[in-house]
Nucleic acid binder design. Sequence first.
DNA 1: ATTAATGGAATGAACGTTCATTCTTTTTAT
DNA 2: ATAAAAAGAATGAACGTTCATTCCATTAAT
Lengths: 191, 191
Amino acid sequence: MAKPDKRDEIVRAALELIAENGFHGAPMAMIADKAGVGAGTIYRYFENKDVLINELYRELEQRLLTVLMDGYSPDKSVRERFIHLGTAVLRYCISNPLDFRYLEQFHNSPYGVVHRRDKISGEADDKDIYRKLFEEGLSRQVIKDLPLVMLFSLAFGPLISVARDHILGFVSLDDDLIVKIIAACWDGLKR
Amino acid sequence: MAKPDKRDEIVRAALELIAENGFHGAPMAMIADKAGVGAGTIYRYFENKDVLINELYRELEQRLLTVLMDGYSPDKSVRERFIHLGTAVLRYCISNPLDFRYLEQFHNSPYGVVHRRDKISGEADDKDIYRKLFEEGLSRQVIKDLPLVMLFSLAFGPLISVARDHILGFVSLDDDLIVKIIAACWDGLKR
DNA sequence: ATTAATGGAATGAACGTTCATTCTTTTTAT
DNA sequence: ATAAAAAGAATGAACGTTCATTCCATTAAT
């Protein structure tokens, strides 16, 4: 691992270009250019564009997960834990707009659908804290009796939508609004 | 204007291919093929692909608006009107998955961002019933005091997310679940 | 200490493919 | 017979990927 230099530059360039212009607005030649690297060099680090896209996704997912877990305590109430997660997600998206835009591009593409299908059909990961949280909320009867995926939509649908609006400049989220929107999501969720 | 035949076939083919495969999975040649039409013929009806994409969007938007207005009474309570709109949107998306998928593709693309920016900066349309509804809810103090775009995210973010999950097969929405999810959205919205 | 040899990393021109659009020919309608 | 409409082959631009070559750091030989 003594050569993160070029690989890192390639990943950074890909993130920026894809986040801003989408997968099809980020040709390999442009990524190479922005990374300060020859076009062929990318293929020394990534087998092809698909692999690059997927590896970048995994890196961002990991970064986000780390942020979410920071200060997360499984002992707190369901409500408190939800507010922690919601706040962390929203703050992360707002202060890392490139990451957020990339994740959105990914999720709204065939890559994302495949990824999601795999995830849902697979066993509950240790890292799948949402699922755990909602399952506990259900068994404690503090949140509405709905299928897990719907609870997820109810809780995070508005947050993602609001984060997008903030990044696109349609609204300006401050601390007060963040607290309010997350409280509103909880109102939708709680029994 | 006595030749809606071919134009219609082209639009239908474009809708289906773009909804299922995205803009980049729907080459003009393929659209022509599916429409049973020569590739060049498309250009007799649409100046270029962009125009085709935008005109199709406008048609779908119009269709949806018609559905929403059906049975909509401005005299009912804010809550009742919201439930009417939410139910109508959700039902429309579920029973017209191609339309829904197309609208999503559009919104999650540069086309959609431009469109949205125009809409928000423009004057309130007569047809902009959401805005009217939320403004009235605000002045009557029955819904939370948040910026309009955030109310929109809060109300429709979950519905769109849930419609997508239904269409992708991650959940199966029946009448009971539809009622419940819309009630939950209202819980998030109401003061 | 200097030079020669080696091998992996990097390069970017070139290739084959795909696509939107245009052009030419053929068909249809009047 | 003429003109409008339709068809699909042709065109050129853009893209992902490959590969022959160059560069550079390290090692071996003198």
